[in-house]
Amino acid sequence: MDRREAVRQVATWFGAIFAGLGVCGASAETSAPAPRTRPRSYGMGVDVDKCIGCGQCAAACKTENGVPPEPHYVRTWVERYVETTDGAVSVETIQPSQTREHAAEKDILRSFFVPKLCNHCANPPCVQVCPVGATFSTEDGAVLVDSARCIGCRYCIQACPYGARYLHPATKTADKCTFCYHRIKKDLLPACVEVCPTQARVFGNLNSPASPLTRLRRMRKTFVLKPGLNTEPKVLYAGIDGEVR
């Protein structure tokens, strides 16, 4: 055997091995599900003019998702904005069965409630900063956290411009609103939308021409929070102005 023939034989063996690798890789890829023919894009609409600040949404979220009862662990919460006559705006997170001061109202120009939650951005900063790829966008638009991969570094909690994430004290992983992913996959509404007594929250598919969310967008002018950050949120607000951030 000359050198030429030896090289040819070695090349044949390597070729066979790489072909085998390729077959193994291909068989692993085929286990992924077939893509949906009509992709959904879940979103939520919030009509601030309808919110009465009862806090039932936040309470239901804690029940549904096993969020710790302490007030600073929240997946969704309701803020009260108070604008005084001198133009100052103060924001507080309301607590259940909290009584609010009625005095000194002559200084208050207006006040209103704004429900907040994860905006499920189409361009999410939390996903960009995660060093282990534990948080990601699903094909239907929800941003989820893989608690099995999350290492609890809190980068995402820092990166979220809406303060929508917290570190779960039991699992020590980042936790956030999932749009009640287990409910919407069973064609149920998210718990907060389910219990909202005034329909201040609506939920639906942004790509569907007949969803309640599409109707809200048609009937009302909707805004997103912090549009300048280019995060492209999928939580749309009706009836807010520049004071709400």
């Binding site: 990601f136 999932t178 149920l188 389910e194």
Partner: peptide, 20 residues
Amino acid sequence: GRHRTSTEERESAKEPKYAG
């Protein structure tokens, strides 16, 4: 892909507490 099926399945498998 940018999503992970296992996490989606685990999230979807959670039991709802509100019936609707």
